[in-house]
Design a protein around this nucleic acid. Sequence first.
DNA 1: AGAAATGACGTTAGCGCTAACGTAAAACCT
DNA 2: AGGTTTTACGTTAGCGCTAACGTCATTTCT
Lengths: 339, 339
Amino acid sequence: MEKRVSIEDVAAAAGVSIMSVSRAMRDVEGISQEKREQILNLARSLGYYPNRVAVSLAASSSNLIGVSVPTLFGTVFSEIYDGMRANFERNGFATMIDVSDYSLTHEEAWVERMISWRPAGLILSGVDHSELTRDRLTKSNIPVVEVWDYTDTPIDLCVGIDHFQSGVEMGDYLTSLNYQRPAYVGVKSGVDPRAERRLAGLRQSFEKQGTQFCAVERSAPDATFESGFLATKRLLSALDSKPDVICFLNDNMAFGGLMACEGAGMSCPAQIGIVGYNGLNINEVLPKRITTSITPRRKIGEIAAQVLIAKILGAATQPATKLKVIIEKGETTKLQGIG
Amino acid sequence: MEKRVSIEDVAAAAGVSIMSVSRAMRDVEGISQEKREQILNLARSLGYYPNRVAVSLAASSSNLIGVSVPTLFGTVFSEIYDGMRANFERNGFATMIDVSDYSLTHEEAWVERMISWRPAGLILSGVDHSELTRDRLTKSNIPVVEVWDYTDTPIDLCVGIDHFQSGVEMGDYLTSLNYQRPAYVGVKSGVDPRAERRLAGLRQSFEKQGTQFCAVERSAPDATFESGFLATKRLLSALDSKPDVICFLNDNMAFGGLMACEGAGMSCPAQIGIVGYNGLNINEVLPKRITTSITPRRKIGEIAAQVLIAKILGAATQPATKLKVIIEKGETTKLQGIG
DNA sequence: AGAAATGACGTTAGCGCTAACGTAAAACCT
DNA sequence: AGGTTTTACGTTAGCGCTAACGTCATTTCT
């Protein structure tokens, strides 16, 4: 436990003023090349690192980016985060992650704490936030990017996909295959607003054909293999006349559902269609590729980081960016005979 | 864009000194209950949040915990992190995550940056770190917990499992089933030292019976369904006489491998045994449960947070905690006839 | 050669808080 | 009553840096 070495110690050891050390460390003008190197070497050998807390206070700005995600399970937000990481690091920003567990209250509390750190910018997941959160952020003039979901009226900036539209498109594809008895398996409502929007899109598309969902089964909050499996089993046993297609909240649940259907003796796609969401990696190894919607998760992260950095540096940026979703026509759905 | 409100503004508005505001905000003694509430209300209505940067500088300590993980894909580190989150939050700590991509150089650079933030504590993944990292941390007297892996000689504290031992135990189980031609599928060496240790344990166990691994196939750095699938295909096509059991780096790769084997017409467990690692959620839905080792990931996170917080608060703590791994005897392995 | 511009530094005044130490009044003792 | 403790504040001096503005020697220009 040695005493922490400060800029003053380095200055004293080098026989210069602390400003010279400061200038040398930050690689700014106002010091000769010779002295700079000399100071840098000395600082290294003394084990001196500038205190970022003091730097942030003195410069009244930090290099911190706050990132709030609902969960790190599943690959969605991990990939979005991964997409932004390299960009932030390359530009000298450090990220502070929050996991909100899909709670707007939690997010609100975090935003409040985060603002206290005077972050250079913030990333929020989705476009649904508490009144207070929106209000605080609007007033704070901290650059904010909302990611994953899309809106024309972001708090500040937005990079995402239109989940409702995405649901409509999948619905249109399924009705084109003549599916007549769709069911849905997701998580309990009020948890994942994006999933709800996709479901609304699916519904609208089917209702255009006069078709209603025959069942909507909702499981515990986590959208895992297991919860998809269990929810599907419940759904199948509760229904007298079975659905001809089940849309799942995501691919994980869809795989669990596929296992449940096959376990119950329903062959896919002959007797039942299975539809997921996201286009996850597991699809690459399945004997039957699941019909799904491929979302540009990494891309969203990359663009979000880029626009946030641009905004921080004062460049003009397009406020909202909408990315495309591609439907993957897998082998778990097929054209149905007209009944 | 309103001017930021500082403690001074609140003090002026309330007609008291800034110290009174400071005391009111921090809920410390030295102010009457009446004034405290009055100030708190005023602060709220003015939208004042204490500047954490200034707080940290003045108090020369922060409430920041740095957490370094190699990756957030897969559930291992997500669950470890999830295990610690609640504990940290409840105790008023904020976490800064780093994703090192399994690079010790990256970790080293991050540790250096992190130290500049004067964190209250650090969590590192694994026990393998660069010389410089160890050196810096030892000298800095910042509390550090190394998680997931286990060592008797941690930098400071350690909470994890013994991966070598874990490999030995699985090896012993497999040799007890009379497997004679084991193969291994993982990622390229130098990436995941824990996986290498498990492989070493497996090897030692088999070698005790005079058995060598007939093949070790290594894929790209990520241990996914897909990389397991592809690596297994390569392994099977390269080998004239097939292995009777394949051990995978983790369950994800094992599932990919299972799909590859079945795709190649090898039935499991009749013709080939499949062994994973971690005991992931996907196992709950598979028609054949994969033989695996169930690791206490969430528990590791919880305990790590507890011991770190204890150390920060100055309590005495046990330096190293070793947790147990449980072998799950699944349906992808079975007793082989003696050949 | 003399004025003006250009380094290469140093000095001063904060950034927004808190720890530590005042100080005066009220509350408590014997 | 007179002293002692307690309570409720205020004042001062930093925490470790940087921005902004000196100062003085060089260089460059005309």
